[in-house]
Design a protein around this nucleic acid. Structure first.
Lengths: 417, 417
DNA sequence: TCCCATTAGTTTGGTGATTGAATAAATTGA
DNA sequence: TCAATTTATTCAATCACCAAACTAATGGGA
């Protein structure tokens, strides 16, 4: 996930690879003995011993005092990830909030915060400062004080050049070509935290990682995460890797053309999926008495979604019809996606989650009818269980993932053995 | 491309990686000295010397006698790929032909053959025998006699489990669950060629590889190859890797739903891209006086395409309208693809190639209008220059690629230094 | 109780591959 | 002819893994 430059292989490359393999094995098998790790990985017991010693020295692994089940032979010393020493932080900035999540090596949440913030009005510079402040606050928290920081990630709703950490275009924030990583890095250096590993990525991409590593579809290497924030975006995880496309524009699910001469979309075209089934379109069709049909500046999306849910539960026919229709269009979009990519799962996130009980049944039906492969190619359709902080969590997890996959950005070492 | 199992890293793993890196560098820079390779790869001169000696021993690299430009200092010994000693063979079986291509290490064609063959009538077993015969004939050719065989690939139009080499479902051939690799392997063992590396894959996938390595868009790591044979399929190459999906069903571009209540498709649904712009649909719309509107058993597609081209050149309004319409639909399909995957290029192959002068202009126009990212996300749309043997060539190239990327299936070694 | 079989983990010697420095080789220019 | 320069090889050192021997800890049987 973090840039892996496929250079020539040397000694440290092989060590890093095996370090990552052992770490991943311990994560999955814990608690387990060195011998078990050796068996599972194919490495020698000697090598595993050496690597484990290294990992313990770095504070990533720890011997649990507890015994394994009583069997014949010398009992093994059980190993677990040491979740006390490290932490990874994920930030998310969106139109109307800043979200921050800290996780440990086990990807368990240490801290979560969700703050209302009018990012659009503030402008990029003020946003960067707000992110810095949120970060410093979390770093200073007693829960974090004793931990080394693996890195920080920032999720942004828009087109990102993740190699340089630049936000190419985020229309909803009105950012264009903002070098967020450089700016934030400078701000943090001024605040006494130089050289922090910083990762900037699209919110849908990081949401996909959150589902991959933490959702109820965890460990599904081919999945698509669909955001339902202001727009519709898709994070495409194929073969456990994010699919970004040649220019980083991949996943623009919201703007695939579905209906010739359909309703106008914010992008200037007609018949885009977003114009047919985006949250904004759904709300305007479901609540014609509350919202004017034409786009207005900004509405309180969260509140309107709640109202829609209330009315749907009450059986309001206008709302039910709007949701049925939107679900059908989402199904056609998903069918297109599944025909092209054949993922194992499609997960709807963001504001689609509360609406899922009404959206998913028609969506699933259309999907089944329009996918060429039998049984939708084995693809499940579900709502995310991660809530609005999915992208922030995913970002933090992406950092942990970088450790596991051997693309360690900063494997901290300690002299004490 | 050939299954790379990401196991623990050892010495040979690192050696294989560097072997591949050096080989690739020499391919791209040839003729070049060892010192230049060292500079380009970041490896030490000593290491490069060792690796080059190894490659020369294997017959993959050769010292050219020729001198470099005269400069100060000891002149370097120029290296090139040794294209004399090795060959890779690609087979393709399709509804009405068998195609075979042999290439050397430079991916230059050694032999090509294209034989009419009614695969559907023959059945899978006879097809396997036909493939064996074609292969033995090529292996026995004087041009091939002195060469070691890197491996053999087979392209099949249908769903393939490339790990096991089984054809899961090839409707146009009427094959269902045929273990082609095992069968062919057994036949070849009987014929005195045991243990040959055999690779079975989808024709669109291999077509994409052919474009990647040999087309005029060579070295574009994010490209989509669209087949125009009986059906429409897409080979998706992203980041230089084939995208297969969780069940190998990825790339079913022909069956994405584009038009609600559109024309009936062979798959039983309505409004699929294939029903709107597939070769069969185009021909029936373009040549209503020649072809009955309903599907008949089998028509001579090649001849009908030629006739369509003739009439289009003559300005036949029925034909021009049919092509314009098909191009528009292909544009919508391509726009969907580009919005989701953001490839650098979309290449049309098969029978779309002769029709390209009429299909591509409307296709490009629609693409430009329906892609969210500016300038179609930088995506080019072109017709393939590789002809009907694209998949066979791609298969042969995939084997060479496996060498380059370090996933050497069988790097042959020779005792003679 | 004692000893053996069994499993865990460490130590030791050895191998393969890269590295860095020194050396030899080949050529240009003064 | 002698520097200067660049190429390629050689050699010792290092690093990481591996195989096998060895130590350690436990349960089960005689």
């Amino acid at each position: 996930m973090v840039g892996v430059s496929e250079g020539p292989a040397g000694f440290q490359a092989i060590r890093e690879t095996n370090l990552g393999i052992v770490l991943r094995t311990i994560r999955e098998q814990a608690p387990c003995s060195r011998a078990l790790v050796a068996g599972a990985t194919g490495l020698t017991k000697a090598t595993v011993s050496s690597i484990v010693a290294d990992l313990i020295g770095r504070g990533l692994v720890r011997e649990t005092g507890q015994q394994a089940e009583r069997k014949v032979g010398r009992p093994g010393v059980m190993l677990t990830l040491d979740h006390q020493t490290l932490a990874a932080i994920g930030l998310e900035i969106n139109v109307d909030y800043v979200s921050i999540v800290a996780v440990d090596l086990l990807e368990q949440e240490l801290l979560t915060e969700h703050v209302e913030f009018d990012a659009r009005a503030a402008g990029p510079e003020a946003c960067a400062r707000r992110l810095r402040d949120a970060l410093l606050e979390v770093i200073g928290d007693p829960l974090m004080r004793r931990r080394a920081l693996l890195g920080v990630s920032v999720a942004v709703p828009g087109l990102i050049d993740s190699a340089s950490g630049t936000v190419t275009n985020a229309p909803n924030l009105d950012w264009h070509g903002f070098a967020l990583r450089d700016r934030l890095s400078a701000l943090l250096a001024d605040a006494g935290h130089p050289g922090l590993a910083l990762l900037v990525d699209n919110d849908a991409n990081l949401g996909a990682i959150a589902e991959y590593r933490g959702g109820h579809l965890a460990r599904t290497p081919d999945l698509v995460y669909i955001t339902g924030e202001v727009g519709i975006g898709a994070g495409l995880l194929m073969d456990g890797r994010l699919l970004r496309g040649s220019g980083g524009f991949a996943g623009e699910l919201g703007h695939i053309p579905l209906l010739k001469d359909g309703p106008a979309c914010g992008c200037g075209r007609r018949g885009c999926l977003e114009a047919l089934a985006g949250v904004d379109a759904v709300l305007r069709r479901a609540l014609p008495d509350v919202l004017a049909p034409e786009r207005t500046a900004s509405i309180d999306v969260g509140a309107m979604v709640d109202l829609t849910v209330q009315r749907a539960e009450a059986g309001d026919p206008t709302v039910l019809e709007a949701l049925e229709d939107a679900g059908t269009w989402l199904g056609r979009g998903a069918a297109t996606l599944v025909n092209l990519l054949n993922p194992r799962a499609v997960v709807f996130g963001g504001y689609f989650v509360p609406l899922a009980p009404w959206l998913l049944p028609p969506c699933r039906a259309v999907l089944g009818a329009h996918v060429f492969a039998a049984d939708s190619g084995g693809c499940r359709v579900d709502a995310s269980a991660l809530g609005l902080s999915a992208a922030a969590r995913g970002g933090a997890m992406a950092l942990v993932d970088a450790l596991d996959t051997g693309a360690l950005p900063l494997p901290p070492s300690r002299s004490a053995a």
